[in-house]
Simulated scan of single mutants.
Amino acid sequence: MGDKRRILIVGGGFSGMSAAILLAEAGNAVDLVEIDAGWRSYGAGISLNGGIFRVFARLGILEAFKAVGSMTDGVEMRSPADTPVARLPTPSLQEGATGNGGILRPVLAKLLSDRVRSTATKVRLGISATGFDNRKDGVTVTFSDGTSGEYDLVIGADGLYSTTRAAIFPDAPKPRYIGQAVWRAVLPLPAGIETVTMWIGSKLKYGVNGVSDGRAYLFVTEDRPTNDRVPEDAQLEILRGLLQGFPAKTVQDIAAGLNADSQVIYRPLEQMLMPRPWHRGRVVLIGDAVHATTPHMAAGAMIGMEDAVVLADELAAQDIEGALTAFQDRRWERCRMVVENSGRLAEIEQGHGTPEEHQRIMGQTLGALAAPI
């Protein structure tokens, strides 16, 4: 509303960085604290729903993304033997962009952190928030380095295992393992792959998506009834073995080419949707801290970054109390849909549904995500 507010963002991931950019450029005094002193982003590639390009344009990084990421159209689905099954359309939602894309996670993180640094945001690394005196008119926050600060608003953007959520909402639901894990690796872009391509088997889903000129990342979703630890030194050979169930030549060529430089990453899949309210006093949660989804719709990063856009818009239009209520009301249904539909896709892939339902839910969800933020 034109007043300069003191705002703390806890967490320097995609959602937190997006909020910092927009709120600092709106004239607020923004502090961002990130527990990782190196401000690193771990992971291989990330698939991007086309709606994220609307957010990139708003953040001012769309053109920079084009230089280091990949833009494609459509999602191609094939059988394990490489027979085409379906092609889901992904129409462009942003001028100058395509319907989906991909990028390496560390590359996207650097685009965003450079953009944060270009604003007046005060970034403090290797620091966490350890205490909140949350009042109706503000929050006193204590930090792990012994300092403290006074804020008009605190935004918890500290991910699936959010300490902010634990402090403000001690009875919030815990992350839930969904019976699947995902394997990822980086590789040369296979010949004949022009867009996001997935092979669907009875217990595995395998996919390839471009992330930049000449490179791609693969993702393999594996049914695992129990959340067991997988030793890092065994992961490469396990992933190669998983791919043996797909006779498609493209898949076999990729399996043969996997090596120590493929950056293989294994991650159990968990989800969490916190019931409303998403704010208490002057503390609000965004991103994975409040609606962590599995990657089945390639929309987790997008909906978290959309949170930042909506919250910034509402804070610019009205007082903090009204803005937090409006933010929650605008975001609930969209985020609920992504979390629950992604969870249902996981169930179907584990044998509790049909391929036809899988395709229908994917198509319906892509259509819903094309709606305005």
Rank of each mutant, 00 (worst) to 15 (best):
M1P: 11
R6G: 09
I7Y: 11
L8Y: 11
I9K: 03
S15T: 15
A19M: 05
L23G: 08
V30I: 05
R40P: 00
S41M: 12
Y42P: 02
G43E: 00
N49C: 10
G50L: 08
G51T: 06
F53E: 00
A57T: 15
L59T: 05
L59V: 06
G60I: 04
L62R: 15
E63R: 03
A64V: 03
G69A: 06
G69I: 03
G74Q: 10
E76T: 14
P80Y: 06
A86M: 00
A86R: 04
L88M: 12
Q94M: 02
T98Q: 10
A109Y: 10
D114E: 14
D114I: 05
R115I: 04
V116S: 08
S118G: 08
I127L: 15
S128E: 13
S128D: 10
N134L: 06
G138K: 05
S144E: 10
D145G: 09
D145C: 09
G149D: 08
Y151P: 02
Y151W: 02
Y151I: 12
V154H: 07
L160H: 06
S162N: 12
T163K: 11
D171M: 08
R176S: 13
Y177I: 15
V182C: 10
V186H: 02
P190F: 05
A191T: 07
G192A: 13
I193T: 13
M198T: 03
G201R: 00
S202F: 03
K205W: 04
K205T: 11
K205A: 15
Y206S: 08
V211A: 12
S212A: 15
R215Q: 13
L218T: 14
V220Y: 01
E222P: 14
P225C: 10
N227W: 08
R229C: 05
Q244R: 13
A248Y: 02
A248Q: 04
V251S: 01
Q252N: 14
I254H: 00
A256K: 15
L258Y: 04
L258H: 05
A260Q: 12
S262L: 11
S262W: 09
V264K: 04
Y266W: 09
R267S: 13
P277N: 06
W278A: 10
G281Q: 01
R282P: 06
V284K: 03
D288G: 01
T293D: 06
M302S: 13
I303L: 14
A308G: 14
A308P: 07
Q318Y: 01
L324W: 09
A326N: 08
F327P: 01
C335M: 15
E340P: 11
N341F: 01
R344I: 01
R344F: 03
E347G: 06
E347R: 11
E347K: 13
Q350R: 12
H352W: 02
H352C: 07
I361Q: 02
T365C: 11
T365N: 05
A368Y: 04
L369W: 13
L369S: 07
I373R: 10
